[in-house]
């Protein structure tokens, strides 16, 4: 990816994030940047992916802000819900595979693209696996993108709803 295109994508993402903040989209830095950068990407006719070091840097920045807030009781808290959480995880993964099979059977989507597109987890790994099977990895990435955007938006609104309902005085993040 050329430096000019990279700067353009980052600028598009930043503008998108600023606009998303104005209209109070849930997770505005992520959802806004996603829409803004994809708009730029589509406008210039594509041209590769972001450098892996930049994605790694993003994960470090986000992960660091989260880790610094974790309390010392985190492992004990997790142990308390580990069994039901594992069941929940298995149910979600099984549902993703089932829905992928349903999409394949009813909408003419390829089997590989449908199943790997609907399994909720490890987007990078799913895309790489589809590529290794000779499937349409861009489509699988797109399906995961739609899932991510919808889930982040809906869950964000649901969280706000719970906070309003329970009278949580903390303002929604802005």
């Amino acid at each position: 990816m050329s430096p000019v295109l990279l700067l353009g994508l980052l600028a598009g993402g930043s503008v998108g994030a600023a606009l998303a903040r104005l209209v109070r989209l849930p997770m505005w830095p992520l959802t806004g940047a996603l829409v803004g950068s994809s708009a730029v990407h589509l406008a210039v006719g594509g041209g590769g992916t972001l450098p892996s070091w930049l994605v790694f840097a993003a994960q470090v920045l986000v992960g660091s802000t989260l880790g610094a807030r974790l309390g010392p009781t985190v492992l004990r808290e997790f142990r308390a819900v580990m069994a039901p959480a594992t069941v929940a995880v298995l149910a979600t993964v099984a549902a993703g595979i089932g829905l992928g099979l349903a999409l394949w059977a009813s909408n003419g989507l390829g089997l590989v693209e449908a199943v790997f597109g609907m399994v909720p987890g490890g987007v990078g790994e799913m895309v790489a696996a589809v590529a290794s099977l000779g499937g349409d990895s861009a489509l699988v990435a797109g399906i995961h993108l739609v899932r991510l955007l919808v889930v982040v938006s809906v869950i964000g609104w649901l969280v706000r709803w719970f906070q309003r309902r329970d009278g949580d005085g903390r303002a929604a993040p802005d």
């Binding site: 959802t31 994809s38 990407h41 594509g46 994605v55 992960g63 861009a138």
Partner: peptide
């Protein structure tokens, strides 16, 4: 710091789309 990280993650996801 988190905002910058999330914007970068959003950009990384957004560039996966093509026409």
């Amino acid at each position: 710091v988190r905002v910058v990280g999330l914007v970068l993650l959003g950009c990384a996801a957004g560039v996966r789309l093509d026409i």
